[in-house]
Design a protein around this nucleic acid. Structure first.
Lengths: 330, 330
DNA sequence: AACATGTTCGCAAACGTTTGCGGAAACCTT
DNA sequence: AAGGTTTCCGCAAACGTTTGCGAACATGTT
């Protein structure tokens, strides 16, 4: 028995379509016994309202789009996992779209979100996205857009992200407290705002505390690059006593290099990372890190989205507080 | 400028809705200059056909559902990542639904897929799912269901999964070819069917080749357990020349132990794993492993899905051939 | 008996799209 | 000039749902 519609129910019950429709939503306009009759039959034949028809009529949907560079990333994994739960509990579904860190595909995905008239979009932009006007245009068309994790620097938009500055400050304070004097700090691509914020806060903290530590800040765009960087700097005799990793991606490269060089943690070298939390547990000793978990962020992003849908028009930048998780690598 | 529809285009152009609709799809029924005019204006005002209306009319959608226990898993990550690409290239989108390994939520998710009249569903069932009738009922309603990874034992359904036996055979053959004589093999929980299949095939292969290798098979339910196991067996002077890990989860624990004990690979100990492929790259040297990647599986599942949509009614059980990826750990 | 009020239900339009059918005009054939 | 063909376009119905409006009837009030 394929699609059972209101019409079929109406015919079976000798009622009009409108009455059946109203009965199913407990409208007081229809007699209580009639309601019972209708609902009983509906349950019997497993009636499901046609979502397309409803969406067409209301011009609303119960689906959110999630546009990310790629799903294969622990942070996005925890973010999406948490977001999906929130969505499900609120009767929404999640559509996942990967951009492959390609702004062209990102734009194409955005077009699809618009075409599908989704209820809202969560987006973590690619590292190369420099025009966010297409996103803002969606907002004008009343499709809320919540930027998360990697967000544009543009002011007037909803952003939910890790408190990059606070995380970097905490990292720097941790290093200062541990009296590290020669620090190799590896940051991500310099044009990313996340990198800029972390780098700036990191350096400012050393200045603020009047630290005499030598800090060598380098940039690395990938795991492979950070591997090379560490091989170059720690391969021959060196003076570093700790390596700071701005991200999991970098941490993995650094740890590979440490293993390659046979460095023992924390004797030969200390490690401190900003991380989502999974990767640090893969090593011995467990890596000490500043946590930037996607779980909390997802909950914040979702409630912000609901607020937007409910009509909140002002924009907000929300930040999640970082926490230091002590391992044995410092 | 909110929603621009065919009607608005028609008014602007002094044409009928039907003509505009046909012009946009290059119907020969409409004069070529008219087509140009229409398309030009459509592009100018950024017209997008209303998906709901189309879906309602055709009773078809361009969305697939993916029901999995949880997204936080490297295998599902690679599977979904790959599946999303395939889907996108074919004009489809993916809706992700997590069951949290709870059959009740799984059923609820299934209901939502039906209600949203998705084009098809990919599902990896929970470890506790014992009634697959709800899934089969969807198939009857012409919503194809492709089971992947964790599949029901029921015959008459579409399944795509890793060839567990073949992977274990390949692992054993690799060890035999490398003339390993003292093997510590760590498997997962003994009650899981995946463990049983791999263990049996592993042992049978040693018998079949008449190998004289000493094989010690142990079970471990988690990363922490496999860590302990290795600490116990490799901590004091031992005779093992290689550790075999049935899964990524186990590999991580084993590698932690190897690092803790300061073992150098492959000099002090060899490592061979069955893995999704990401984890082995986190270490130096890169771990040699039998690949059970979600990528290939996703492509197989997707093409099977397309076949089902195209009308193929017969069911199939597809297995992905495992491949040995050489690292430097053997 | 006249009127107001309340209860229960159906009609019809609307959401945006697609498509079979037929109409009008233009052109060609004899 | 009559008939046939082609070209171009519009009418209207359909997909399934929701909802304002009003119809029909019953009940309560003077």
């Amino acid at each position: 028995m394929p699609d059972v519609t209101l019409k079929k129910l109406a015919e079976l019950l000798n009622l009009s379509i409108s009455t059946v429709s109203r009965a199913l939503k407990d409208h007081t306009d229809v007699a209580i016994e009639t309601r019972q009759r209708v609902k009983q039959l509906a349950a019997m034949v497993d009636y499901e309202p046609n979502t397309y028809a409803i969406n067409l009529r209301t011009n609303l949907s119960r689906e959110f789009g999630v546009i990310i560079p790629g799903i294969a990333n622990d942070f996005y994994q925890s973010f999406i996992s948490s977001l999906e739960e929130e969505a499900r509990h609120n009767g929404y579904s999640l559509i996942i779209l990967q951009s492959g860190d390609d702004p062209v595909i990102e734009l194409e995905n955005l077009r699809r979100c618009k075409q599908n008239r989704l209820a809202g979009i969560f987006v973590s932009i690619t590292s190369k996205t420099n025009d966010i006007n297409p996103f803002l245009r969606l907002v004008e068309q009343h499709i809320p857009v919540i930027f998360f994790d990697i967000v544009p620097s543009f002011e007037a938009c909803n952003k939910v992200c890790v408190d990059d500055a606070a995380a970097a400050v905490l990292a720097a304070e941790t290093l200062i407290a541990q009296k590290k004097k020669n620090i190799l700090a590896i940051f991500g691509k310099s044009q990313l705002s996340i990198t800029q914020k972390r780098l700036q806060a990191f350096n400012e903290t050393f200045s603020k505390y009047g630290s005499d530590a030598q800090v060598c800040c380098l940039h690395s765009g990938s795991t492979a690059e950070s591997f090379e960087t560490v091989m170059d700097h720690l391969g021959s005799p060196h003076q570093y006593d700790v390596v700071f990793c701005m991200s999991d991606e970098i941490l993995i490269g650094v740890m590979k290099a440490a293993q390659t060089l046979g460095l023992v943690l924390p004797k030969d070298i200390g490690i401190l990372a900003i991380s989502e939390g999974i990767i640090p547990t893969y090593y011995f000793p467990r890596i000490t890190y500043i946590e930037t978990s996607g779980f909390k962020l997802a909950k914040m992003a979702f409630s912000r989205m609901l607020a937007c849908i409910a009509g909140s028009s002002y924009v907000q930048e929300l930040k999640s507080e970082p926490v230091l998780i002590a391992g044995g690598s410092l």
